[in-house]
């Protein structure tokens, strides 16, 4: 049944900050194993959309379902308790533009913190898994380093491993390579590509057009808070339907070459 495969369902979400309508009636469904890339100019509401998914922002209208469970609102339309919200959030991993690692913890501790403290999983098991994840992102030798001692690319690989350590059903990426020096972008995209191949379910906000073209199962183009266009990447990049998307792609044409590391 298709419905069982649906990890994320964003249904008609709107959000405004004061008079500024940042999201207007945005819908998005993501099936298990999909990599959806969200594209759009700066200020178009991409971050806000991601932040609504794990309820860092409360949408003004619309619903969000994670594996069929309503996010942020419990049965009778009451705001969800912190406990339930926290449970949902641990099933959604988030990767931040500026890494947002916890500066007082070592790399390994960053990975173990939420699984041990929030999910209350046994420490030994979490530690083994965290080390395996560090192996996977190529940073096992940095496990006892503090984040401040790492390069941007290394920090972001730790950021991805930290999100994976919670065994999430869904990973959200908010411009994971935008803060990186160009020569460090590749090492992060390699990890993300691998996750896509392994069938991790991901929603990725990015300006890396090359990556989106290759790795996305679907792209969603946001402009001024509206879902202007969405579809398979081959179609979007070759024959965008709207003038807005065409202009946007022209502006980022240079990045298409860049992204193919």
């Amino acid at each position: 049944m298709a419905a069982l495969n649906k990890v994320l369902d964003v249904a008609g979400v709107s959000k405004r900050f004061g008079a500024n309508e940042v999201l207007s009636d945005v819908s998005l469904q993501v099936d298990k194993g999909e990599t959806v890339c969200v594209l759009g100019p700066s200020g178009s509401g991409k971050s806000t959309l991601l932040r609504c998914i794990n309820w860092l922002e409360r949408p003004d209208a619309g619903q969000i379902y994670l594996n069929g469970q309503r996010v942020g609102v419990s049965g009778a339309g009451i705001a969800m308790s912190d406990r339930d919200l926290s449970k949902i959030r641990t099933r959604v991993g988030m990767v931040f533009q500026h890494f947002a690692l916890w500066p007082h913890l070592t790399v390994l501790q960053n990975l173990m913190e939420a699984p041990v403290q929030v999910q209350r999983r046994p420490k030994a098991e979490v530690r083994d898994e965290a080390l395996a994840l560090l192996e996977k992102v190529g940073l096992v030798e940095k496990r006892d380093a503090f984040p401040s001692r790492l390069s941007g690319g290394q920090k972001q690989r730790v950021g991805i491993a930290r999100a994976l350590a919670m065994r999430p059903d869904l990973l959200l990426f908010d411009e994971p390579t935008s803060a990186l020096d160009p020569e460090l972008v590749g090492e992060v995209l390699v990890v993300m590509r691998e996750l896509a191949h392994e069938g991790m379910t991901m929603v990725i906000v990015t300006h890396e057009m090359g990556f989106a073209r290759e790795a996305a199962t679907r792209v969603l183009f946001l402009d001024r808070g509206r879902n202007v266009e969405s579809g398979p990447p081959e179609q979007f990049f070759a024959k965008p339907e709207t003038e807005r998307a065409r202009q946007f792609l022209q502006r980022y044409a240079g990045d298409t070459a860049n992204g193919k590391h």
Partner: peptide, 20 residues
């Protein structure tokens, strides 16, 4: 951002304050 990451990773209230 690190504090927001704490919230996104399920920390809240006292635990957020104490750990993050």
């Amino acid at each position: 951002e690190p504090i927001e990451a704490g919230v996104a990773f399920g920390f809240s209230d006292l635990k957020l304050f104490r750990r993050i």
